[in-house]
Amino acid sequence: MYEIRIHSRGGEGGVTAARLLALAAFRDGKYATACPLYGAERRGAPVVSYVRIDDHPIRIYSQIRNPDLVVVLDTGVMEAVDVLHGLKPGGWVLINAPKAEEIPGHRSYPVDLTGIALSLGLVIAGSPVLDTPVLGALAKMGIISLESAKAAITEMFSDERNVRAAEAAYQELLP
């Protein structure tokens, strides 16, 4: 089982990103569940979402303690939350940033999702859309296929700029 924890702020699309990722994994022929950890959060509050991907039906509903991958959609939450908590040794970190510092014991993947969203004009209610470009980055990391990432985005959104955003992130992320 592959376990992913997504950190974001309320309104940034972390919950949707988790759903999109589950859908893409599902289109890849895997089993997947996405579950946001709900507080009484409002826009701007730190939010955590979980995604599990497996070859077998998933029966676990509890929180992910030791993720294989941590996704940080907003580096601002890192001041309040220990995003690396419980990350498996050698586990990966995908960070929405033009470049990221080295994280000892882990491999970090920086990608400027915000820049991609802004360059395409993907802004909703004043916030850049991060949940669709991040799928492209996850595809480049091999978590899902690019084809399924695009299929998932097309299923959930009609604006085709979302697909282009995913493609851009796929291109930009260094493997």
Partner: peptide
């Protein structure tokens, strides 16, 4: 159905 655990969980 369990609040959040199932009501807000996404599955196939």
């Amino acid at each position: 159905l369990d609040g959040f655990l199932l009501s807000h969980s996404t599955q196939s």
